Computed example of a mutant assay.
Amino acid sequence: MDLRKITDDFSVSPQIECEDVADIAEAGFRSILCNRPDGEEFGQCAYDAVAEAAQAAGLAVRSVPIVSGMLSEADLAAFRAALDELPKPILAYCRSGTRCTMLWSMTSFGDLDADEIVKATSAAGYDMSGLMRQMQQAR
């Protein structure tokens, strides 16, 4: 597993497997948030299997599947609701962790300064500077 901390309450990861869930719980996470649609890639672990393993481990779990390049306002609202409602800390996963990081950055913009977002995401290995510039210009 490649867990990357963005904040004390939110981390991201590339695709997880069912057998990773016990380690995720042991690492102190209380929730898993899936941002990857089933069937995006051959052989990926299905959300229902991850959800079953998470529930068995006592973790909350939710799916807000985002098709790459097809992000909508409703998707952002669902992601923000998940962040607000799920017990923390939350581990979000997608194919590489980038999609989750982008969603967090977009929903955090306005609550956090763009520089804070870039610093937090860069420390986790994700460059959101271009996205933050676009969001600042769109204001």
Rank of each mutant, 00 (worst) to 15 (best):
112 L>F: 09
63 S>F: 08
89 P>K: 00
43 G>T: 07
45 C>P: 05
90 I>M: 00
106 M>L: 04
79 F>I: 06
132 M>P: 06
9 D>C: 00
137 Q>V: 03
67 V>T: 14
83 L>H: 02
35 N>Q: 02
25 A>E: 10
36 R>L: 04
3 L>Y: 10
61 V>E: 02
95 R>T: 04
131 L>P: 01
23 D>N: 12
77 A>R: 15
107 T>W: 03
51 A>N: 04
17 E>N: 13
73 E>W: 14
46 A>I: 10
37 P>M: 04
93 Y>H: 15
130 G>Y: 05
101 T>M: 05
139 R>D: 12
109 F>N: 00
107 T>A: 02
98 T>G: 13
28 G>R: 06
60 A>Q: 11
13 S>K: 11
125 G>Q: 04
35 N>W: 01
50 V>R: 02
36 R>K: 03
110 G>M: 00
59 L>P: 10
116 E>R: 13
134 Q>N: 09
8 D>M: 05
71 L>I: 15
66 I>F: 14
58 G>R: 11
118 V>H: 01
2 D>V: 11
123 A>F: 06
73 E>H: 11
27 A>T: 09
138 A>D: 14
118 V>D: 00
16 I>T: 05
44 Q>M: 10
59 L>W: 04
118 V>T: 03
114 A>I: 07
122 S>P: 05
2 D>W: 04
36 R>M: 03
125 G>I: 03
45 C>Y: 01
13 S>F: 05
116 E>D: 15
102 M>E: 15
87 P>C: 01
39 G>C: 07
123 A>H: 04
24 I>A: 09
34 C>M: 08
29 F>H: 05
81 A>L: 09
33 L>Q: 04
114 A>Q: 10
128 M>G: 01
14 P>A: 12
81 A>R: 14
81 A>M: 09
35 N>H: 02
46 A>R: 13
83 L>V: 05
88 K>G: 07
21 V>N: 02
93 Y>P: 08
71 L>E: 14
60 A>R: 11
8 D>G: 13
119 K>R: 15
105 S>H: 00
139 R>S: 14
27 A>W: 03
108 S>H: 03
13 S>R: 10
109 F>H: 15
96 S>D: 00
103 L>Y: 00
122 S>L: 11
22 A>K: 13
113 D>F: 03
55 Q>L: 09
95 R>Y: 05
128 M>N: 02
98 T>S: 15
125 G>W: 04
32 I>Q: 02
55 Q>V: 12
10 F>H: 03
43 G>C: 06
63 S>K: 11
62 R>S: 07
56 A>K: 14
56 A>L: 09
87 P>G: 00
63 S>M: 11
67 V>G: 09
39 G>K: 12
69 G>C: 05
38 D>Q: 08
70 M>R: 14
32 I>F: 01
100 C>D: 03
36 R>N: 06
125 G>Y: 03
44 Q>Y: 05
96 S>C: 02
113 D>I: 06
